[in-house]
């Protein structure tokens, strides 16, 4: 009995490159598509033994319709976005332990009283929060670029989510953009200045900024682990 025909490493590389070209950027989805297409090509060649790999491959790709992998990739991204938010929620939930809640509340109350005591000189506290916020963004981007350098241009959803996820937008928009917008638009208007230097705002801003920085750090590390795990299994 002859052994069933298998695709060569070059042929598999061709399929992988083809999927990449078709914007299937997530490694886990690409692994599945490469395997599926390889099986389809082999089945096609079994039926039509004289067909070359290229003809067989482009023949089976046609069965994915005119949009090719577009729909599968879009739905995968949608599912993975949900997963990204679930990870964030799970991380947040895991942080809600009595000592951590106590620490957060103490930090919030401490900052509140400090801001209240400072009264006329609260602005430095706001700039400290702003510095922390910018620092956490800078560190996240730096961490992402380091991961990318170490792991190549492969992406997992967590990695993509942690780098371009809505977290930045929502967080910065809610905590920073809205109060500051009025301030920058009309600097003479001191109401906005009062808002961003209000003890309650400052305590929320400083504590949330720190939590946000930690959450993003955690997500990046988890993304790196996930990708290394997949790559190890591929080796």
């Amino acid at each position: 009995m002859s052994t069933p025909k298998q695709l060569t490493a070059e042929e598999l590389k061709y399929i992988d490159g083809f999927c990449k070209k078709k914007d299937v950027c997530y490694i886990d989805l690409r692994i599945e598509l490469v395997d599926h297409l390889a099986e389809m090509v082999l089945a096609y060649q079994e039926k039509h033994p004289n067909t070359s790999f290229h003809d067989a491959f482009h023949g089976v790709y046609k069965s994915f319709g005119i949009f090719g992998f577009m729909d599968i990739a879009a739905q995968h991204e949608n599912q993975m976005r949900k997963r990204y938010w679930r990870e964030i929620w799970q991380y947040t939930k895991s942080c809600i332990t009595p000592p951590r809640v106590l620490l957060t509340l103490s930090a919030s109350v401490g900052i509140y009283y400090l801001a209240d005591a400072l009264e006329a000189t609260r602005m430095p506290l706001f700039f400290l929060g702003l510095a922390l916020f910018l620092l956490s963004i800078t560190l996240t981007i730096k961490q992402f670029l380091n991961n990318k350098k170490a792991l190549g241009d492969e992406q997992t959803v967590l990695m993509a989510g942690a780098s371009r996820g809505g977290g930045f937008t929502i967080f910065s928009y809610l905590l920073l953009y809205i109060p500051l917008q009025g301030f920058w638009v009309n600097p003479g208007q001191t109401n906005n200045l009062e808002l961003i230097t209000h003890p309650i705002y400052l305590s929320i801003f400083l504590v949330a900024t720190s939590i946000f920085g930690l959450a993003n750090y955690y997500l990046q590390e988890k993304a790196k682990e996930q990708l290394q795990e997949i790559k190890a299994k591929m080796a």
Binding site: Q6, L7, L12, I31, V34, D35, A38, K233, M234
Partner: peptide, 9 residues
């Protein structure tokens, strides 16, 4: 993920 016939499945 498992390695099968030279590809990951």
């Amino acid at each position: 993920f498992k390695k099968v016939d030279g590809r990951t499945r």
